[in-house]
Design a protein around this nucleic acid. Structure first.
Lengths: 342, 342
DNA sequence: AAATTGATTGGGAGCGCTTCCATAAAGTCC
DNA sequence: GGACTTTATGGAAGCGCTCCCAATCAATTT
């Protein structure tokens, strides 16, 4: 269709290339009549400026990268990531940026992807889902000087801009709620110990218990991997410890836990109460409906983009930090609607 | 870090720009010793070629676009899309392409996104999830002459390359299975009538019944929207027609239907058997485990990329078509394991 | 030994845009 | 009404790469 160039448009509109460029970029100082004439030619010819040429000349690609590291690339088994991606994509649309998606599936992928990310002239900035502790990717990106926003607090946050929710506090509130309802043996299905999310949520769990003078019983703490099936196995491992309530560090794990509880012939919440984390759509329609911590996943992604654009515009110093609020959504699975706390 | 250019590398290695370029692009006819010397300088300096300049000079961006149209942007509520995206991303990694993701969330988004997609010099090709019938996007893309592969048969497939599964046949097999099990009032929760997937699956449903001399009872056909909640409401609408089996056009809807059935105080599969479509991970862990049609979602995405690269390489004529196989996965929800067919 | 071939290398012309600078035209001021 | 701004436009120099073409030189052929 259009192998047209600025030059062609300029000729047809009887102006110079510069003027067409000004029109294209909404620069002031173009006579209204000229602007109209140029726009008309553009419309008629169906001209679209060449992105690569623009990027090369202006040194801005209007493109952001979203990197989902290997450790989380089981990924699309947890609806958290699609939601996040959606929020990010919305923000990109809104601010007229293009989103490049990098799913790191393997070490091999990582080797291939990294040069592409750090290649100059491709991305104006990078969003990185924080992964495992010890993941090299963040350090490499940081070193490459690309504007970078991390989603989820990195283990080593010096100089890094990131967005997150206050996981400690959120978990603290959820578990406190169980304590108030009078449960005595409250367990937790934590995430893998090598991520800050997991650590923070477990921390909140422990703090809620300790503050009420409860002891921490290690047999009531098991580790899952944020997936349904992981929660299922974790719950099976937890059952012998006879918990009367469980705080799962993700909704997916909570659903798995509920399946394990039912299969063991126990009732929710009468025998074991369950609280999750995320408030994904299926939490509300689970049987029974899941009490859970709502975190604003898509808004988190949206905000991350806004911060990234700020970094691109105004430099990365000082690092920006945004902590978003969570909310405990009380439904049936915690027994609050049936039981009275002390 | 690197505002280095080819020129700098050339100077440091004592060769010309051309030679460095040859090394970078694995051209033959570079003396082994020179190649090594150049690579060493590149390694030492941490040089990465500028993507925009490359694209501009070579007229290839090594970037593909994935467009998910508005009609499916409820999107991440159905795990189908994440899976598909994953398959596509894998293929992109494998073939060293970068993936740009375009989630069309609104009419406004579409207006903003379309120019970006058709802007020359950004994408070498486009993957489009087929959306509603009458969606303009495909026609516009087709008209813009970008290499294009559609995922899911488009309503008007002339000249279009696409990948799909044989939905008619897959549905036919699923419903035939229910017929063989002896169910007499087999209903279906179809997808919205404005997409080819829905039409094909409904077609397969009807064909399976008609071929066995059954009548089509319109009250046994209701429409969902491929979501869990849509399936839930559809099932509620279906209950008065007293079906003894239901074929849902997606697993998400099947899950919703099962919830509605349970809430009505009926048992699965004793009172109503359920069959889904997709075989998403949660199908296996549903209660009872869901009998469903497995379609190779990620491989479909992978294949779509391969076809697209073929189009880019060898031209779009003739259009390529790939239909992948499905498989009926028999679990508990259809009652096959308890009941004997005639 | 002259001619031909083939493998290497360098030079230079773009790719299609942005943006700085110079220039021209049109106001503005006392 | 001349000196000075302000506004609008064109020209040209890149942005950093690829790739064609010509040049060089060694190896091979006749």
């Amino acid at each position: 269709m259009s192998n047209l160039t600025l030059e062609d448009i300029a000729r047809q509109a009887g102006v110079s290339r510069s003027t067409v460029s000004r029109v294209l970029n909404d620069h002031p100082n173009v006579r209204e009549e000229v602007r109209r004439r140029v726009l008309e030619v553009i419309r008629q010819t169906g001209y679209h400026p060449n992105a690569a040429a623009r990027t090369l000349a202006s040194q801005r690609s209007l493109m952001l990268g979203l990197v989902l590291p290997r450790s989380v690339s089981s990924f699309f088994s947890d609806p958290y990531f699609p939601r996040l991606t959606q929020g990010i994509a919305q923000a990109c649309n809104h601010y007229n940026y293009t989103l490049a998606l990098f799913l790191v599936g393997s070490a091999e992928d990582e080797a291939k992807i990294y040069p592409r990310i750090s290649r100059r002239g491709l991305l104006d900035g990078v969003l990185l889902q924080s992964g495992q502790i010890g993941d090299q990717l963040m350090d490499r990106l940081l070193a490459s000087n690309v504007p970078l926003v991390v989603i989820g607090r990195p283990f080593n946050p010096q100089g890094v801009s990131y967005v997150d929710v206050d996981n400690v506090n959120a978990a603290y509130n959820a578990v406190s709620h169980l304590v108030r309802l009078g449960y005595l043996r409250i367990g937790t299905i934590a995430g893998p110990d090598n991520s800050t999310v997991s650590i923070d949520r477990k921390e909140g769990y422990m703090r809620a218990l300790l503050e009420r003078g409860r002891k921490i019983d290690p047999s009531l703490i098991v580790e899952g991997d944020f997936t349904e099936i992981g929660g299922y196995y974790a719950m099976q491992a937890l059952l012998p410890a006879r918990p009367d309530a469980v705080f799962a560090a993700s909704d997916a794990m909570a659903i798995g836990a509920m399946r394990a509880i039912r299969e063991a012939g126990l009732r929710i919440p009468e025998d074991i109460a369950v609280v999750g984390f995320d408030d994904l759509p299926f939490a509300a329609t689970a049987t029974p409906p899941l009490t859970t911590v709502r975190q604003p996943i898509a808004p988190l992604g949206f905000k991350a983009v806004e911060i990234l654009l700020d970094l691109i515009e105004n430099g990365a110093q000082p690092p920006r930090r945004v902590i978003m609020d969570t909310e405990l959504v009380v439904r049936d699975s915690c027994g609050a609607l049936r039981r009275r706390g002390p």
